[in-house]
Every structure is written in structure tokens, then in C-alpha cells.
Design a binder for these strands. Structure first.
Lengths: 195, 195
DNA sequence: CAGTATACTTACTAACTAGTAAGTATGTCA
DNA sequence: TGACATACTTACTAGTTAGTAAGTATACTG
């Protein structure tokens, strides 16, 4: 009596591999054939678990949204201070980067946004909104507590921070693997209280 | 006796259209067929001007690099003050965005970077380097002149700014067309001298 | 033991992809 | 006038794509 079907684990393996391929080559850069070959099965096996590529994309984004919510609600995270939670948020992107070989979900999807299925566009927008909302509230609370310093609206600063992380992880692939860490250090310096 | 062949202008039209498609749908999201159909010619006509898709991509990036250099060297730009040049740089991205429908060149290419031809990867890296170098020097000079205020290395701040612009232009497509302007306003607020 | 669900494989299709070879219309120039 | 270059078209190929229909092996279940 499982919550989700995972008898042989193929479904999970497909998702893991698809996620890596998506973040390495973009939505139009990977095929069911690539996944099938890497897993040693036929492409029809992938269609059995995810009838269309759209289903697979939506499943990946929905899982990432669930993960983000779980992370946010986790006791270990909630017990950290403002800087601790911010560093935890940065570490998500550092993990995404994997040494400058991959980008984050939204960065991988946005560049081909124009011909993405509507459901994937919607899931992307929802994930983006959830990240912006969380970080905005976090920056707001941290500034009120004196942990952060910045001008303007928390929502604007949150957009800047997430945009910078997304852009930096992409730049890291252009022969500049240290770029993400550099930008994170700069973001932290810019948020430092004045004295 | 022309510098470049442009008798009927088809070559130029191809580049304009390819640039729009690239920035709307990514490198793997547009085909010679799309360009040919929109121009009312056959796909072989595109191959006549650009034998391979790689040639077309390289031509687009090389042109963008030339444009950036010309812009930088232009007298009108050189005569502006630090904030004037920075605003001019921001306006490039605002123009790129076209109301939240498209992203910048590097953003469009980086998400499928893994399976891009080597020559396109190199041109992308060169364009990125040139932008970072210019903005880094600009921020350095502006801070020394007292026009800007920021902590840390100019190169790091330049990476943050360009990353934020690249990320924000992508976020603008996720149902948040105002996101680029919001981030630009925040970047400017963060660079403001303290008193 | 029969029936059913799961997790596939085999074998296929229609559409699209970049790219090519050969032919043609038009203009330029000696 | 004739040779040549430019800018295409026609007609094609080989490979890849997402997706489907029908069959099969295995395990569970009443």
C-alpha cells in the first residue's frame, strides 16, 4: 500500500534523469530516447509512466514545488536565524549548479518558454511565485530584526536576489564556474547591516 | 561594391527573424523551416546564406558583439556620466525584453548550453566576458568618482548586476512583465551613495 | 486456478529536423 | 553576346522526434 507506484523504481529513475537532462540541455534538448537509452529500456516504457512529455515536465515541476514547501516548513530550517535561512536558500542554487554544468529549473525552462505547453508555463510561474513570496517575507522579517540592510521593497529585493542567482548559475557555464559563488558573496555583502 | 552582400536584404531578414525566434524559443526551439515560412522562401534559401545552423548562430552572436563594442565606443555614450551610462546599459535589457516576451541572447543560449556547437559556446563566453569587463570598469570608475556605492570587488558587483538583469528578463515572462523594471529600480537603489 | 493489474517490449507512424545536389531566373560585365 | 556570379527553387535524404497499438511476462488476488 504505497502512496505512489514505485515497485521497480523506474518511474523515479525517469524523473531523476529527466531532471538532470532538462537542467543540462533545456526542455527541447532532451528526448524520451535519451532517457530510455540511459535507463536501458525502450522509449515506450517512458510513455507508459508519462504519456506525454508535458506530463513529465509537469510532474518534475510539481515535485520541485512540493520539495520547496517541505523545506520551508522543516523544523531545522524554521529554527535557523535570518542569515542561516538565507544561506540555506543560497545552498539550493549551489547544489543546482553542480560545478557549473547545470542551471536551475526556471532558468532551464524560461529560455524556451515561448513553445512550452501551457501547463508547464503555469507550474513554472507558480514555483517562481512561491520562491519570491518566501524570500520576500524572509527579507522583510530579517530587515525588521536588524539582520539585513537594504533599500526599497522586500519584494523587489527578493526579485533581484533570485534573478541574480538564476543569472549567475547560467553564467557559471560560460567558462566561469566560480561565478555563482562570487555572486552569492556579493549578495551577502550587499545585505550586510552597515555597522 | 558593398561591404557585405545585401542585394535583396534576405540575409538581413533571416538574421532579424532568427534573433527574435532564438530569444523567444531558444536555440533548439526554432528551425530553418520556421524562418523560411515566415519569409516566404524555401528552407534551402536559408542554407544558401547560412550553410549550417551553427553558422547562423555564430553570425548572430558576432553581430551582437560588434554592436556592443560600437555602442561602448560611441561618443554620445562616452560623454554621459556614470549614471547615464548605467541607465543606457539597463535600457539594452529593457529593449531586449519587449514587454516580457523575450530574453537576452545569453539567457536564451545558456539553458541549452550542453548541446550547443563549440563555436557558439565560445562566442557566448566572449560576449559575456566583454559585458562583464565593461561594466566592471564602469562600476569601478563610478565608485571612485563617488557616483556609486557598493561593497567588494567591481567585478563581483558587475556579475551580480548582469546576472540579475538576465534572471529578471526571464522572470518577466512568467506572468510578471514588470519584473525587469522592478529589478532595475532595485539595482539602482542599491548603488545609490549613502548621503 | 482464473482474472486482472502492472510494467514493460516490439513494431510502427507521421511529422519535423538539418542539410544537400542539381536546376533556374536574373543581373553584371568584358 | 556570352561567361559568370548571385539568389534562389525543386526535390530529395537520413536521422530524430513524440506518440501509439498490440502483444507479453510477471505478480497479486479472490
Amino acid at each position: 500500500m504505497h502512496a505512489t507506484k514505485a515497485a521497480t523504481g523506474t518511474r523515479l529513475k525517469i524523473m531523476e534523469l529527466a531532471q538532470d537532462l532538462l537542467r543540462e540541455r533545456g526542455y527541447n534538448g532532451f528526448s524520451y530516447g535519451h532517457i530510455a537509452e540511459a535507463l536501458g529500456v525502450k522509449n515506450a516504457a517512458i510513455h507508459y509512466h508519462f504519456p506525454s512529455k508535458e506530463d513529465l515536465g509537469v510532474a518534475l515541476l510539481a515535485r520541485e514545488r512540493r520539495r520547496l514547501q517541505k523545506w520551508i516548513e522543516r523544523k531545522q530550517i524554521r529554527e535557523l536565524d535570518s542569515w542561516g535561512r538565507l544561506n540555506w536558500f543560497f545552498s539550493i542554487y549551489q547544489h543546482y549548479s553542480e560545478g557549473g554544468t547545470r542551471v536551475c529549473f526556471l532558468g532551464a525552462l524560461e529560455s524556451s518558454f515561448g513553445d512550452l505547453p501551457a501547463s508547464i508555463q503555469q507550474e513554472s510561474a507558480a514555483l517562481n511565485r512561491e520562491m519570491l513570496d518566501w524570500l520576500g517575507a524572509e527579507l522583510d522579517a530579517g530587515r525588521q530584526a536588524g539582520a539585513f540592510h537594504f533599500a526599497g521593497e522586500p519584494a523587489s529585493k527578493a526579485a533581484l536576489v533570485i534573478g541574480a542567482l538564476q543569472g549567475a548559475i547560467q553564467m557559471s557555464r560560460l567558462g566561469r564556474p566560480q561565478q555563482l559563488d562570487t555572486v552569492i558573496a556579493q549578495l551577502k555583502a550587499d545585505l550586510q547591516p552597515l555597522n
